[in-house]
Amino acid sequence: MKAVRFYGKHDVRIDDVDEPSTIADDEVLVRSTYCGICGTDLHEYTEGPIWTSATPNSFSGSALPQILGHEFAGRVEAVGRSVTTLRPGDRVSIQPQLGPRDGYFGSRNLAFLSGRGATIGLSWPWGGMGEFAVVKDYNAIKLPDDVTDQQGALIEPAAVAVHAIDRSGLKPGGTILITGAGPIGALAVLAARAAGAGRIFVSEPNPNRRSRIEQLGVGAVLLDPTTESVVDRIRQETDEGIGVDAAVECAGNGRALDACIDAVRAQGVVVVVGLMQGKTPVEPFKWIIKDITIQGSLCYPLTIWPRVIDMIRSGLFPVETMIDDEIELTDILEKGFKPLLDPTGAMMKVLVRV
């Protein structure tokens, strides 16, 4: 079968690999239909290996070269003998986190925090950018008829955004700042609107991405941090100049984090989603005198898929508006990675037709 495999920095290839020949009793064979290109895939390509590894993963045994793709949907081809929740022909969206069920984190369904877990498409033998993938039964969540495979492929990044908004404590009518209008930032905008945000401020230096946020039609206040003070503008537009109730940092840089800290009101919440490489200077004194909460947000509860599916079905969470293009496996670099890595571009999400 054809598969996109990552070998190392700037080294992604279209390979012919053997199809899965056997599945365990608790496993499911899935034929991939659509797979999203994630920012994590792009980071692997430009800076990796990061999440992928040259040494075998302690749980899965997977090592480079790695079949990429952790945002995907597909159809069930076969199920193991102990699988009762799925049958061949079912359409599914893949929740990619897996790991042992023992120990403190594993027993709490949080293996991705244990250091012993794996992620399909990053540290598991299979990924969504291969024609077939073997997953555990709990990784494959059945899709209803009124949710498309394309929407199903976007549930994973949507779950990241919904969880970040949950962590912010945003209430209906509340105010929120989102820094960085890449795919996760844009999905966080949609999730904030679905959560009932009264006002959404978005800080993004790229005019093309600001235009994409405007096209979402949620009425966000768009800010260019290169030409105006984000904090001053927010103080002007919030009651008594106190700032926003919450901020979600999706840009992955220290300046944006500082803006979030300065923009939230006293006892506000700052959620950090963007991945920052290396150290960044911080001023904890600000946190103390404002009595604010700084909250990290990694992944999502593994049980969130049905909730996100229902949000999509309701029309409150139109994730399909993020899709810019659908490409073939063989075009992964020229029509996928390269335009998504363009710092002046507007593209949010490219789906690979597998």
Rank of each mutant, 00 (worst) to 15 (best):
Y300D: 05
A192H: 03
S114E: 10
G130H: 01
A158V: 08
I200N: 04
L298N: 13
D26R: 09
Q215G: 14
T33F: 00
A111L: 02
E204C: 09
L29Q: 11
L190F: 08
T175I: 04
I200G: 07
N253H: 13
G130F: 04
L64M: 10
S211P: 05
D166L: 12
A256Y: 03
V264N: 04
A197I: 00
V221D: 11
R210I: 13
H70K: 07
I309W: 06
P306R: 04
T293Q: 11
G174W: 01
K286S: 11
G173V: 12
M129S: 10
I176N: 02
P343V: 11
L333E: 15
E249A: 09
K9F: 03
A251K: 02
V264G: 00
R307E: 14
V221P: 01
E19G: 12
F132S: 10
R75M: 12
A188Y: 03
V202G: 04
A256L: 11
D310N: 14
L187I: 08
G130Q: 07
D232F: 00
V202N: 06
H10I: 03
S168K: 02
V76C: 08
L64I: 10
L29D: 10
N206M: 11
R265H: 05
S58T: 08
I141K: 09
T330E: 15
Y34Q: 07
K171M: 13
L68T: 07
A158R: 02
G315D: 06
L333W: 03
T22N: 14
R212S: 14
V352H: 00
D331T: 05
G36Y: 07
T175P: 11
E326R: 14
S168N: 03
R75P: 09
G103R: 06
L257W: 02
F112E: 15
D325Y: 00
S21H: 06
E19P: 12
I178Q: 08
P125G: 11
T238M: 08
